[in-house]
């Protein structure tokens, strides 16, 4: 029974939203919007509470155990401080909340994002090797795209952007579309398996 009810709810809502997609009748639109807007918003709000509580609990326990204590304390301060700032002064432009956001969170996130540049360099150094003919072709295409995305591409040969565009629009796009079709079909079969109840792992197991 513990598994049967969620499975029924899943199947019912799956069927309703599937059918509503094909209807432009006001009643069907209303059902569709109620499910996709109201229900999602309500579930989303509750999941935030679940997430925040879990985060605080896990980090408090880690602080008690002395595990990575400085990191956990910083995380907990952040999780407590931001809602307080938002509740007292609001979140509009110029508020303390926005000040912290713009002057602490934005630079920190930009820093983590910028690590990508370093990792691209190290991954290129280590991974992009002409081990075989196919790898060599891939390498050639990568070099062409890299040159074309910088200003020097036009200076070396004015047809480089055109050649890179050809690679992007033909071989690369064909491969991408084939993979996308495979992913689309995989998603579709997984969805049908879930809706008809063949796939039950998402409920926490087979029983």
């Amino acid at each position: 029974m513990r598994r049967r009810i969620p499975q029924l709810v899943c199947g019912l809502f799956g069927l309703v939203t599937f059918l509503c997609y094909f209807s432009s009748h006001p009643i069907a639109r209303k059902i569709y919007l109620t499910v996709t807007l109201d229900y999602w918003q309500i579930i989303f709000a509750f999941t935030l509470i679940v997430g925040a509580l879990s985060f605080v609990r896990v980090n408090l326990r880690a602080v008690e155990r002395g595990e990575d204590r400085p990191y956990k304390i910083v995380s907990l301060i952040g999780v407590v401080l931001m809602p307080i700032l938002a509740l007292i002064w609001g979140i509009r432009g110029g508020s303390p909340f926005m000040w912290v956001f713009e002057n602490i969170q934005v630079p920190m996130q930009a820093t983590v994002f910028s690590l990508l540049a370093f990792f691209v360099a190290s991954a290129s150094y280590r991974g992009f090797r002409a081990r075989s003919l196919q790898a060599a072709i891939l390498l050639g295409a990568a070099l062409l795209i890299l040159i074309s995305r910088s200003s020097i591409g036009d200076l070396i040969w004015d047809r480089i952007p055109e050649a890179a565009e050809w690679v992007r629009s033909n071989p690369a796009m064909s491969a991408r579309r084939a993979i996308l079709i495979g992913i689309g079909l995989g998603s579709l079969t997984t969805s049908v398996r879930v809706l008809v109840g063949i796939e039950r792992t998402w409920l926490g197991g087979e029983k």
């Binding site: 360099a121 290129s124 150094y125 992009f128 090797r129 390498l139 890299l146 995305r149 910088s150 020097i152």
Partner: peptide
């Protein structure tokens, strides 16, 4: 900056090879 970074990555690929 983007151009030199790209050139640097190309150089790294060549050195790696």
């Amino acid at each position: 900056a983007q151009t030199t970074a790209h050139m640097y990555v190309i150089l790294m690929i060549l050195i790696g090879n």
